[in-house]
């Protein structure tokens, strides 16, 4: 099957029921997406599938073959950070940062659909992403900074 990740097509021979996260991390060496729970409960593994945020730890590769998969590694274009990444870099909200890739992918998806979300919309949209270090309010600040005024 062919996996289209960050604009690059990868021919892989895998059972279709393998989790996408495991393939990204162990086969394609794209380790930006993290394992946190294995059940779609923490958001650390969030990637975009045709633009929709998805938990790659409970997504099978068979279900995404041929679709456009974007991971944290695919956000940077020609050495320039994605505006959402730039806002997070500027706000510096993270401690251990293990949740950062998933947070940023979820935020990218949110802002694409809703470029100027209210605080309530941010909370509702980001509630599936856990930051165990607990700096949620500064993460919200970063998302607001990345929002259209």
């Amino acid at each position: 099957m062919v996996l289209n990740v960050n604009g690059v097509k990868h021919e892989v021979s895998l059972e279709p029921d393998v989790e996408l996260l495991s393939v990204l991390r162990n086969e394609l060496e794209l380790t930006g997406s993290k394992y946190g729970c294995g059940e779609g409960a923490c958001g650390a593994c969030t990637v975009l599938i045709n633009g929709t945020p998805s938990r790659s730890c409970i997504t099978t590769v068979g279900s995404v073959a041929g679709k456009e998969i974007t991971t944290i590694e695919g956000l940077e274009k020609n050495g320039t950070l994605h505006p959402v990444q730039a806002a997070f870099l500027e706000t510096d909200p993270f401690q251990c940062s293990y949740c950062a890739p998933g947070m940023i992918m979820s935020a990218v998806a949110l802002l694409k659909n809703n470029p100027a979300p209210t605080e309530d919309a941010i909370i509702k949209s980001m509630d599936g992403n856990i930051c165990r270090c607990g700096t949620y309010l500064n993460i919200i600040k970063a998302i607001k900074l990345a929002s259209k005024p």
Binding site: E29, T31, K34, L81, D92, S97, P101, I104
Partner: peptide, 21 residues
Amino acid sequence: VKKINGQSFITGKHQYVSDMK
């Protein structure tokens, strides 16, 4: 002073032990 290696985390480049190979 901002996290001095902050960019490596928000780009997913930082290698945690679980990422190493």
